[in-house]
Amino acid sequence: MSVQNQPPRTPTLTQVLECFEELWPQSLAEGWDASGLVTGRPDQPVGRIHFAVDPVQDVVQEAVGAGAQLLVTHHPLLLRGVNSVAATEYKGQLVHTLIEGGCALLTAHTNADSAVGGVSDVLADILGLRDVVPLAPARDGLPEEGLGRVGQLERPMALSDFAARVFGAMPAVAGGVRVAGDRDGIVQRVAVCGGAGDSLFDEVRAAAADVYVTADLRHHPASELREAARLTGGRPYLVEVSHFGSEWLWLPAAAEALDTLLSESGFDVEIAVSGQNTDPWDYVLTPGS
């Protein structure tokens, strides 16, 4: 009997992880990263899955309160080593809340950045880019896998209009969108990187991008890039967005992709995307505010 003719069933965590590996292979994770399963028994049933950017207390409480058996976050909880998960510290408290609530935790970080349909692919698609390729192709992956993306807008547009498009695509956060460049300058070739992307400046320049959309731009790398851009007609321009916002855009697409694959495998799982805004900033002061 084919999978399509069998009644849907609840998968185990192991079976969900197998589907997850197909979509966002662990082999694509950077060597310094801490993606993968953090808590959870392999044989536990998973009937509800919750997606979020950050494993913070409000998100964990939301997932456990919704009866989820698996919380998937983009950012790792244990990226830096800890010596204890006692509930006297916030990371330990999160681990206890998850375990006591019967909810496993799985993180998909740089593997979800590099994979086809990952964070930067979704960002490129939302901004209307075509002929998209990786900025930094994966060493051992497919040609279309790697960090960041670069592609073409359907037609050239002013930097100010493009920045407005970016602003309209992002979740509302305190920091808004910052722009460096001639507001009337014309852009068409666009590079993007969800999350912190100033480590890819060399690749952005090599790709001859007119503008680069990313988050967490530090003063000195950004200043040096802008000074060097004076020799190349002011390009690449910069559009800085919220780290959280640029990666939150991936969640609905990721939830849909996992739901489709689980359904095709004969599983019945409820999947939800967190409504929590986990951007760390609450408000911003600007001249005249």
Results as ranks from 00 to 15, higher is better:
W32A: 07
T107I: 04
A87R: 14
G92F: 03
W32P: 00
L105E: 01
P25Q: 05
E62I: 01
G101V: 00
A68N: 13
A66Y: 04
V56G: 05
T10S: 15
R80K: 15
V59K: 01
C103F: 03
V119R: 10
C103P: 01
I99K: 10
Q15H: 13
Q93M: 14
D125W: 14
P7M: 10
D58C: 09
N83E: 14
H75F: 05
D125L: 07
L77E: 01
Q44S: 11
A68C: 15
P7Y: 09
E22G: 15
K91H: 09
V46A: 03
G102S: 07
G92P: 07
P76K: 08
A87L: 11
A29N: 04
F51I: 07
A87W: 08
V122A: 06
A87G: 12
T107H: 05
R41Y: 08
V95R: 05
V95N: 08
L127M: 13
L127H: 11
V53S: 02
E21G: 06
L78Y: 06
L71D: 01
L123I: 13
V53Y: 00
F20D: 13
Q93N: 08
A68Y: 02
Q44G: 02
L71T: 09
Q15K: 12
A29M: 03
T110I: 10
G47V: 05
V56P: 00
Q69W: 06
P7E: 11
A115P: 04
A108Y: 03
A52C: 12
W32T: 05
V38D: 14
C103G: 05
E62Q: 07
A63Y: 01
S84Q: 03
W24L: 14
G47Y: 05
A52S: 06
A108Q: 10
G101C: 00
I99S: 13
L71C: 07
V82I: 14
V82K: 14
V64T: 11
T88K: 02
W32C: 10
P76S: 03
H74C: 02
N111T: 10
L105D: 01
S27A: 15
G102A: 06
P42T: 07
P55E: 04
P55C: 14
L28Q: 06
R80E: 15
G31L: 10
D43H: 13
R41N: 10
D58H: 11
H75N: 10
P7I: 09
Q44I: 03
P11G: 13
L71F: 01
W24Q: 14
A86P: 04
A108G: 15
V53A: 04
A87H: 08
S27G: 09
G36I: 04
A108P: 03
A124L: 08
V56K: 00
L70D: 04
D121G: 10
A34F: 06
T14G: 09
R41S: 09
P7D: 12
D33K: 07
A104Y: 03
P45R: 08
D113V: 06
A29C: 08
L79E: 13
D43K: 09
Q44M: 15
A63M: 06
L13E: 04
L105R: 02
H75G: 06
E100Y: 01
D113H: 02
T39E: 12
T14N: 12
V95E: 01
P7R: 13
P25H: 08
C19H: 10
L23A: 13
